[in-house]
Design a protein around this nucleic acid. Structure first.
Lengths: 336, 336
DNA sequence: CTGTTAGCGCGTTCAA
DNA sequence: TTGAACGCGCTAACAG
């Protein structure tokens, strides 16, 4: 690779002049500018982003750490982040934590070593608080993604899980459902906790509260969750099943299949953050859809403002998740 | 941030000594080593990957360019790449082309400017050949992902599309299907072309060739594809529909719904590279599944060998895609 | 309008 | 076993 010196030599100018035409950082005579451009073309010169970053102490690169790259929700957010970053001429370093606190920490350290200008982080379950404290202390621009932690003094982006889930359950109650099952998953995950809270909100806000019941299935082990749901479906008079995430929806549908309860013929079913490809399902599934790409884009916007702008109080941005009613809840009414 | 000089000063040694304990690149007295370690801890020193990379002219970072980050197949491959890269202590710079030749080129140039040690590239449709030629000429280690182009002198990884599709169609023919519809999509995409070829292989390899027919729907516009399939379903006696990819499967199922032909009751259906979440579908869908993560991991392995190893001829690695038979083809037999 | 020069933070000769 | 000094390629003063 040719360097800036080669270009300077061939163009018969100093390296600083070359630098300045490259960055349009000071006026330069059209004539010499042309000679420089010619030399650049001739040598196939390309700026070395490394040296440039070292000198400017800015890498024009941001880091993104998620727990699972291929989970559809995260894939969408990654897409949004990539899009927005490219738009701003920022590179994107991607890492994943696999929900492990130590891997998460290593990932973050690696990105910081590479001197990213900012960091977007979807925290892992049981992520160490020390990590966030370090980030705050170092004043390294950081945005927390998806999983929101109110106490933290960092910018955060997510959806209004609680509100959306509340709307879904209110709708089901309005349809006459009184006994629900909620596959809630690991409540240490902030989003799942909020969704469970939304279910409780709806029930407590319902006038006929005493007669309503919800069996909430929590935990990490999918086999256990599935077995629990099967038992409930067999022995309780559950008329509607709700899953708090895509993976949990799969568990729930497996359990329903296992005990021979089909939706919507035997039971209503809804899921938070299901699959984009709803036309593929028979029946179509009622879903709370989150704007995954937009979440990612918003994260970059907040991060960029934090990177360039002046100091300001941390902000929490909640995007709307939308309730999409389809056959799996609309084609079944609970017995009166 | 503290630098290596701070550490050296505090430990009372020279910076070269600090460097050597950091990289274990030459023996150092246990005593001084301890002092250095202490100083490192005290200052919270972290190596600056930028300066290090500039000096060593190695970034320990690879670049990945895909056409669409959130498409499930690519999401899986990205996951695999991330995993394998982390395993090798390599950073991962992610970019996407959105199937555009110019965006792809910009993405690659950006990554090269950042001096990635290697590049993994899933080419966009109509990707310029000049780009590959440049990569070959610069001897920048490169692996082509997913979309394989036989003429190119670069390492490549993908699945055996043709063979898998051939197996699927052979199976359908064996079941008595004689009139098929193939939603083949954009045949400029190498993978889609190979899948279409696989269908032809099966038909030509079938003894009763003359009586078999397949309506192949090609093109980019999903509305057009859908309309075409609807027409065929209405007027031809098609007994089986095959989609060449996940997005195409959605189009196909939409069309089937629109004309009121359901699978498996009225018609058989199969798709290449469908959805991981097959338990969710009623009926379950026959699918050719590709090992997306493994493809990504293999790409990193090839790339790493190319980065470290000696010169060698470019290799093309084909992983097996597996045919998973389910209700959508097994619960329907064509009329004799 | 242009050139000279001093680092950015590190790894690595070479000499002691 | 250790240290001094150079340079990776570039930007940003400062000088002219």
């Amino acid at each position: 690779m040719s360097t800036i010196r080669d270009v300077a030599r061939i163009a018969g100018v100093s390296i600083s002049t070359v630098s300045h035409v490259l960055n349009s950082t000071r006026p330069v005579e059209p004539d010499t500018r042309a000679r420089v451009m010619a030399a650049i073309a001739e040598t196939h010169y390309r700026q070395d982003a490394l040296a440039r970053a070292l000198r400017r102490s800015r890498t024009d690169t941001i880091g993104l750490v998620v727990s699972d790259v291929s989970e559809p929700a995260f894939a969408g957010m990654i897409h949004g982040v990539e899009r927005a970053a490219t738009e701003l001429d920022l590179g994107l370093l991607l890492a994943s934590s696999g929900e492990g606190a130590d891997r998460e920490e290593r990932a973050v350290q690696t990105l910081l070593n590479r001197r990213v200008d900012g960091l977007i982080l979807a925290r892992a379950v049981e992520s160490h608080d020390e990590l966030l404290e370090q980030l705050e202390k170092e004043k390294s621009p950081t945005v927390l993604l998806d999983r929101i932690h109110p106490g933290v003094a960092l910018d955060q982006v997510g959806v209004d899980n609680r509100h959306a889930m509340r709307a879904l359950v209110a709708h089901l109650l309005g349809q006459g459902h009184r006994r629900l099952a909620l596959v809630a998953g690991d409540l240490r995950v902030a989003t799942l906790k909020e969704r469970e809270q939304g279910v409780r909100d709806a029930i407590e806000g319902w006038p006929a509260f005493p007669e309503v019941s919800v069996a909430t299935l929590t935990g990490t082990d999918s086999a256990v969750l599935r077995t629990q749901l099967e038992d409930i479906l067999r022995h309780d008079q559950v008329t509607a099943v709700i899953a708090s995430s895509t993976p949990l929806a799969i568990i729930a549908l497996d359990a329903m299949t296992a005990v021979g309860r089909r939706t919507p013929d035997d039971v209503a079913f809804a899921t938070f953050d299901g699959f984009d490809q709803h036309p593929m399902f028979t029946p179509s599934l009622t879903t709370i859809r989150q704007p995954a790409m937009e979440i990612g884009e918003t994260a970059v916007r907040l991060l960029h403002e934090r990177m360039t702008g002046t100091e300001s109080a941390p902000r929490i941005e909640r995007l709307d998740a939308t309730l999409e009613l389809r056959d799996s809840t609309e084609k079944y009414r609970p017995p009166a």
